[in-house]
Design a protein around this nucleic acid. Structure first.
Lengths: 191, 191, 191, 191
DNA sequence: GATGAATGAGCGTTCATTCAT
DNA sequence: CATGAATGAACGCTCATTCAT
């Protein structure tokens, strides 16, 4: 097994265990076992558990971006862009349930809160498409007159809730349901 | 200190510690200390930590109901009832940030998922006002034609997100902002 | 077994293991086992291993002082007082080899160096009899004209070396040898 | 880098790290890094860490001998030879604090005790000048009537203590202080 | 020969739970 | 009933040593 293979196995094992059982349901020894490596090996790639967790988060974000930006037309009208990003995101979560559950765990933890705080304070990375989109929407008065944070809540709150319900098996979303859901989000956001 | 007093102190201490520091930030010994009881005493009232956590959840739900049902008019039109419940809920969370954070922690944990599964499968308790309301709304065709689960997501997804952002200090909600936010939720839900 | 018993057993076990095998030859699990307590129990009495080590040092010092001060006559001539303290100390070490080896381990470790630094800088505790004695000796010009630190080295260097050699079985000291050794130390120190 | 170079670098790195941070402050990986070699390479030159430690000790002793024997006159009177060796040793330690601290660490460890035991039991190496000197001194009745071990303690106990105090910064020894200190040692030893 | 990634036993420490008092 | 000292399994992490390259 070559070097990056081990790292990948560790990351995959951590993703699975944390997504399924949360941070304390994923002791390092179990991550190692599931990755097929020795316990000490993890520490060659990640300084400690916190670093592994944060690094994994960043990797998931990076994998997600190309997916949701695929076919995104910068110059399209606001509504079209909103629907594109929304449906793409929801589709991504549904197709990658492990990613979704990991991201959720992360956001509902001290890590995630600190992360968001940084983002909101503008040290952002990554999430900028959304921020840009909504800032334009606000400037063009096509969205309701709310602080950005609330617009985000109106747009993504339902999206994330619906994704979770699908993944937990509480609903079964097909493509048309995805689109209709995002249109409903749009109704909440639009002026 | 009389018997129910001790129980109350334990519950209060657990609420504070878990809301502020999460489940692992609340060791039983610390809960006991903060409650002013012996560590073993907790186990007279709660079989184990899981039971304490679940029990506490149920108590918070019960405390919440009278608050949000206060002034609720069964026979009012759907929209008015929706707005009443939504604003009441959001107000409740803002006024009881500890409760909110506890409920959130709970929902984002294996406990919460099992709990919701039971509810959705119909063994519900508590949440019935919302279920009834939305079932009526669906029957009257005043809300969008979605499964109940998605309607819930559209209604409460933004609400919870906004409450969290307020409590974490990312926005400052006043009464009019609360009302406007719930109206935006309504836009998402209404047909 | 009553409360102070457990603490005593832990301290005794730590003393034995550390004296015989050094700090890393005394893992907490082994200390616990030898003390006949659970591993976690140690932490009820000592915050962590460092605290256990430092505390044990202090206890040994405290046990030693009454022994060497027994029969010490403040107003006796310098030489007599020197011989008293020196022989008493050497006798103590020979009678308490575990104490001696522990104290040695402690002094030859970061703990001990920090400790001595504090003492020399005057934040002393305990060792004051010796300091007082030598300061008087210096004032009366009965000892050689050296900084205190060097006088200490001349007096205690051989004493400690001899104690170690006895305990390791390299010599066998009897009472007269003890006295003659301390007299030889005196020759090194006296003007 | 040629073969003996690597060995030397390993030894130098081990000396520095162990002298400054003790045996546990010198993990093999760090020794390798500081030596500029691979971790596995150390094991081509030294069977294991214990061997490295013992070997390094022997090398330091060997480097020390030429230094202290420089100018040593076999036929000079006992006192002169004693003073020569004593001052040379003390000077050596002061000029080579890393060596001194290493030797000290070594002596205060299971390695050192085993080593000394061998020496005293006569399997000696190295230390023979001192042994010879003192055996002569005993035969000529110029030193006190003590077992060799005690004479060593009287002579080197203060010397080592003073060296340590200098290196730790508790005193500052200059050339005359060195000489006076060794003369004081002489007072302790001489009949 | 030289490497350094990989290993896993072992460390110090925590904490849910028990049970003698 | 209430207590809190005691427990020990489990955790995150280190490091001497090995071995495929």
């Amino acid at each position: 097994m070559s070097k990056p293979d081990k790292r990948d196995e560790i990351v995959r094992a951590a993703l699975e265990l944390i997504a399924e059982h949360g941070f304390h349901g994923a002791p390092m020894a179990l991550v190692a076992e599931r990755a097929g490596v020795g316990a000490g090996t993890i520490y060659r790639y990640f300084e400690n558990k916190d670093v592994l967790i944060t690094e994994l988060y960043r990797e998931l974000e990076e994998k997600m971006y190309p997916f949701i930006l695929d076919g995104y037309a910068d110059e399209a009208p606001f509504r079209a862009r909103f629907l594109h990003l929304g449906t793409a995101l929801l589709r991504y979560f549904i197709e990658h349930p492990l990613h979704f559950r990991y991201l959720e765990q992360f956001h509902n933890s001290p890590y995630g809160v600190a992360f968001r705080r940084d983002k909101i304070m503008g040290k952002a990375g990554g999430c900028d498409v959304f921020r840009e989109l909504f800032e334009q929407g606000a400037a063009q008065q096509v969205v309701k007159d709310f602080p950005l944070v609330i617009l985000f809540a109106l747009a993504f709150g339902p999206l994330l809730a619906v994704a979770r319900d699908h993944i937990l098996g509480f609903v079964q979303l097909d493509e048309t349901m995805i689109e209709r859901t995002i249109e409903a989000c749009w109704d909440g956001v639009k002026r």
